[in-house]
Design a protein around this nucleic acid. Structure first.
Length: 712
DNA sequence: CTAGGGTTAG
């Protein structure tokens, strides 16, 4: 049916052209020598407008346009803002006062009243009794309430009951006593307990009851409702209640603001977040560190570097100190935005400011260094962690292992893994084993991988889908197909749900298998993705299948495939066709893959140079692409059209320690074709040919011969 | 702790 193959899944909040220019401009931040100049200083180089809200549409919208989504959806009754601020019901009428004093005052009053309550000990004991009793005995036990159930006594108890069932029983009991009117606070406290139990339905009923009985819903009520909905993933409910709040004229305070900003952020509604943020500021709200942390997280998820700079810059200009959570969020965000160097300098800035990193800080950084293949920085940080006694937890251990897998640090990983086995609190789990399987799997160490596999079942750690994928890849490369089948079968029996990555991995094994092994692996794949197997059989058993049939079926399969697995699927299918001498099919698949956007930037052209970029192609796909290119160039030569002086093909050198030798396979293919491409001295994986050499080589071969000549 | 908000793993 409907597919989105032609349109890659891009965020609707892509930067405008202006931002693009800004991003591409070389930034002084990138200079490694200016470590301490940090992000904050240079962020002032761009205009201080909120980035994504402005960047959200192709033509930068006016402020009014930016606010339109909100004003039409939630301010329909109050078309102008001044109106809102003058509403008598508003609980926040003085926008020049950034922090309403109500909050701290109320909290203070509460704690002092507690200390004056001489019955507090009895009540605490009674609360414990209630918490310990069976739910069925609850109402009987409650009859022994040690003192008159005054407002204060009831509140104290309500605050200390859990789980939510008991809180609710007690709340109903207090209501039935009719000893005093139920105020907002009783509902708020009950809702808080219900939130722990993720009981949004109950919370909403209570809120509706408040409305029905005319009990005021305040900011605490609304923020509790909103965060509960959020916790239950009921984001539209959260928005609905926020809109209701607005409509009834309650102005959000800073807590409600950050709660609801987080809702919009988690929905990916960057524009709404930014316009609400601006709206709040315009009416006197001073965002605090928590609000900025919400923004930072959102920009991180979007990979929006300009947004991250905006957060740093605004915090600086408002004089808000970065705390540990904000630093952690920003570090994570910089990682997602692909800025490892800036993450490193922000971390140094944090440490210099006297803040000690916690587990989350270090996890974020280690992950960033691993992904960036910054082995030196990763190992230095690891060393510093040990020297400074910085905290390590389970997740950090596993992240260190994954980092070792990324960097090919086999010995370090083995040492760490043994440490974990010897520890009490951080025994290796499926994540840890997966990281180790990844290391052995990509390093081709089948024996050690299989030892781990057996060890896992002994240790009672279940293999997950990624561990299964690592093993399948490793056993496939070692041509140990029977072991592969047995690992796959075991995984299925223990409940592993095959995903597209695993299917892609099986498919790649199919591409280089021979004889009965092919059928064995296809039988595995059949269990995970029967349509894919049917398609493979169509490609390899029936040469007469019409191209349009292939095209429709391929499109259908890709539509049902996770985006990150689409190109691997196409690569493998091309390899399968080539290895079975269905070269025309391989060319068709490459064409279809390009058509569906799986190979963006395959060809790049400048005045001086045309380049074929095959870095993300499999060996067979790269060979097919080269042949295709040569065929096209032969036609151009035949038509005597103009050509650039230089031609190049880039296979990349492969940053990964375990990466496959696409370059060498490509080199031997070039050699086989006797094409005049030579690998550059300084740049591994870059093959170049001059126009003169290439043209004379192309002319020496009749165009009609091209496809058949390339079939070896 | 004593009615409400933000951060860690392929």
């Amino acid at each position: 049916m409907a597919t989105n193959l032609s349109t890659p899944p891009l965020s609707p909040y892509l930067p405008s052209d202006n931002h693009h220019h800004h991003r591409r401009r070389p930034s002084p931040l990138r200079l490694p020598t200016k470590k301490r100049c940090t992000i904050s200083c240079s962020s002032s180089k761009r205009a201080p407008s909120p980035p994504s809200a402005v960047a959200g549409e192709k033509h930068s919208p006016s402020l009014a346009e930016q606010l339109k989504p909100l004003s039409t959806t939630i301010l329909s009754d109050q078309p102008n803002e001044a109106n809102l601020l003058l509403k008598p019901k508003s609980t926040w009428v003085n926008p020049t006062k950034p922090k309403p004093s109500v909050l701290s005052l109320q909290r203070h009053k509460r704690s002092s009243s507690h200390s004056h309550n001489p019955q507090i000990k009895d009540l605490r004991n009674f609360a414990k009794k209630l918490n310990d009793c069976e739910e069925s005995d609850f109402l009987a036990v409650i009859g022994g309430f040690p003192h008159p159930p005054t407002r204060e006594n009831a509140l104290l108890l309500l605050n200390s009951l859990r789980p939510w069932q008991k809180t609710l029983l007690f709340f109903d009991w207090v209501k039935a006593q009719n000893a005093f009117p139920m105020e907002t606070i009783f509902y708020n406290v009950t809702m808080k307990s219900l939130r722990f139990g993720r009981q949004f339905q109950h919370i909403e009923s209570l809120a509706l009851e408040m409305i029905e009985k005319g009990i005021e819903l305040d900011n605490i009520t609304y923020s509790t409702i909103i965060t509960s909905a959020k916790r239950c993933n009921l984001f539209s409910k959260a928005v609905e209640w926020f809109e209701r709040m607005y409509k009834t004229g309650v102005m959000p305070d800073e807590v409600t603001y950050s709660a609801v900003l987080d809702v919009y952020a988690k929905l990916g509604k960057v524009e709404e977040v930014m316009s609400l943020f601006e709206r709040g500021r315009a009416s006197g709200w001073k965002p605090d560190a928590i609000a900025f942390s919400v923004l930072a997280k959102m920009f991180g998820e979007a990979g929006d570097y300009d947004g991250i700079k905006y957060v740093l810059q605004e915090m600086k200009s408002l004089g808000i100190q970065l705390n540990l959570v904000v630093y952690n969020t920003l570090l994570e965000a910089l990682g997602k935005a692909g800025k490892p160097g800036l993450a490193r300098s922000l971390f140094e800035e944090m440490v210099d400011s006297g803040l000690a990193p916690n587990e989350k800080t270090l996890t974020a950084l280690i992950k960033i260094y691993g992904r960036a293949r910054w082995a030196r920085d990763a190992l230095q940080l690891w060393e510093r962690m040990r020297l400074n006694g910085w905290p390590v937890d389970f997740i950090l251990y596993n992240t260190l292992l994954s980092m070792c897998a990324d960097l090919g640090l086999v010995e370090e990983a083995e040492t760490l893994f043994e440490d974990m086995k010897g520890s009490v609190k951080c025994k290796p789990d499926s994540w840890s084993y997966t990281a180790m399987l990844n290391i052995y799997g990509s390093g081709g160490n089948v024996d050690k991988a299989m030892v781990l596999f057996r060890e896992m079942s002994e240790a009672g750690v279940e293999l997950n889908v990624m561990g299964c994928t690592c093993l399948v890849q490793c056993l496939g490369r070692a041509k140990k197909i029977d072991d592969l089948v047995s690992v796959f079968e075991t995984s299925m029996e223990t409940g592993v749900k095959p995903d597209d990555r695993l299917c892609g991995c099986l498919l790649s094994v199919v591409s280089y298998c021979e004889g009965e092994d092919v059928d064995k692996v296809l039988a595995c794949l059949e269990q995970a993705n029967p349509e894919l197997v049917a398609f493979v059989k169509m490609l390899t058993s029936d040469e007469s299948t019409d191209f349009d049939v292939v095209k429709e079926e391929f499109k259908r399969i890709l539509s049902n495939t996770a985006v990150e697995s689409r190109r691997p699927f196409c690569n493998c299918l091309i390899d399968i066709c080539r290895n079975r001498n269905y070269h025309e099919r391989a060319h068709e698949l490459l064409y279809l893959g390009s058509l569906y956007g799986l190979y963006p930037g395959l060809h790049t052209k400048t005045q001086e140079e045309w380049r074929l970029n095959v870095r993300s192609l499999s060996v067979g796909a790269a060979q097919t692409a080269l042949e295709e290119w040569m065929g096209t160039l032969a036609k151009i030569v035949q038509r005597q059209e103009s050509l650039p002086a230089l031609f190049s093909a880039n296979t990349g050198s492969g940053n990964h320690k375990f990466s496959q030798g696409l370059g060498s396979a490509f080199a031997s293919h070039v050699e086989k074709l006797a094409a005049p491409f030579t690998e550059s001295e300084g740049k591994a994986g870059l093959f170049t040919a001059t126009r003169e050499d290439l043209v004379s080589w192309l002319q020496s071969r009749a165009p009609s011969v091209m496809t058949t000549a390339c079939t070896n």
